[in-house]
Write a protein that binds this DNA or RNA. Structure first.
Lengths: 203, 203
DNA sequence: CCGCTAAGGGAACTGGGGTTTCGTTAGCGC
DNA sequence: GCGCTAACGAAACCCCAGTTCCCTTAGCGG
């Protein structure tokens, strides 16, 4: 049985909150690779034994942090048009990745996911939830007749985020609002052209 | 002056080749976070002092490995049509990322880039070269009249790769040939729609 | 082929990240 | 509010990644 599952109230919850906060701070300052659990314990004003007992490794700590982040997701937009909704989504992601704290945090959890299977699971579930949250934008557009009937909604949402994450992690090119808008427009154009229909693309 | 710059021949070159090979093997097996320089030295049958002296850190070693990988880049395709060239590019990237050795290696260098500024520089230059290699496909399509005159060629190429890397690093969704084709088609559709023109998108 | 010294290698050393031990605090059922 | 024990925490401990020391090998200019 996991530590903290039997008496989850009071001190246990306070310790968890303090440690996750401290872990976030440490990740933003040093990044995942230099995350020192003893340092996290010091910041949280908690015994380092506690951190090692409850979370074990840096990856375990990040996994729990991600579970915590997953609970506060922002609601999707509903502007009335596909391009409006996709732009809203792209700009939300853009602002998140550019924000110095949030951006560093996302880089850290993505790195953690490449190092640890549980962290990877948590990350994939995190994004599955986010994508599912925004998919109705596309489904509404289908119902309005803006898009082909069997358009894969999740695929369209993924297509909006992909260029932003590609720049963050791979190419290092700047991530500004104009490029977020282009990402939204590109996804919309491809969806209109029927590229994201579930059976097959147009011939 | 860097070690190995004064007598770059013979033993120095042999040691570098052996160490980079061993580093690649170790990265594929354990990933960047568990890269142990002493282990690399053992695999390369080289003194661990040598590895620490010449490369210093895991990030430094990966940076050099990336410089080595940059030298063998595959030539771009020339199928005669934009969609053909983009599909070839998407499938090349797809095969690379799915390949157990290459995929692990790319994940590792991307992780290294998030930890170390020099590694990040090396990675960004690596992708800038790859993108520049494939940009002429788009420029030819412009000349053929397939695309608007002021299409940003690099942006189109990036749009092809982005969904593949997004799945590799972020969402964890499968990366098969069909999805590579969709990525190519989506980029082509957006480019046709004028989303990637340098002045501004269509109104 | 000789000498200078760049580069490599074995071995001992060290510091701090992670573990173990055991005593203390406080959540929660009654 | 009482008692049981889950959970926390201080300190001693251990192990190994990374460093230092110093000797050996071999590239390369002459």
């Amino acid at each position: 049985m996991a530590v903290g599952a039997i008496r989850p109230g009071g001190r246990t919850a306070r310790v968890r909150a303090a440690v996750l906060k401290a872990a976030g701070d440490a990740l933003v300052e040093h990044g995942f690779d230099r995350l020192d659990l003893a340092d996290v314990a010091r910041r949280a004003e908690v015994g380092k034994t506690t951190v090692y007992r409850r979370w074990g490794t840096a990856a375990g700590l990040v996994t729990d942090l991600l579970a915590d982040m997953a609970e506060q997701s922002l609601p999707r937009a509903d502007t009335g048009s596909l391009i409006g909704d996709l732009r809203a989504n792209a700009r939300l992601v853009q602002r998140t990745l550019v924000d110095s704290r949030q951006g560093a945090l996302f880089r850290a959890v993505i790195v953690a996911a490449t190092c640890d299977l549980r962290a990877a699971d948590a990350l994939h579930r995190f994004y599955a939830v986010r994508i599912a949250e925004w998919a109705p934008c596309v489904e509404q557009a289908v119902r309005r007749g803006e898009l082909p009937p069997d358009t894969d909604a999740a695929e369209v949402i993924r297509a909006v985020s992909a260029p932003l994450y590609y720049r963050l992690l791979v190419s290092g090119d700047p991530i500004d609002e104009a490029m977020a808008d282009r990402a939204a427009e590109a996804a919309a154009a491809a969806a209109h052209a029927g590229v994201f229909t579930q059976t097959s693309g147009p011939d």
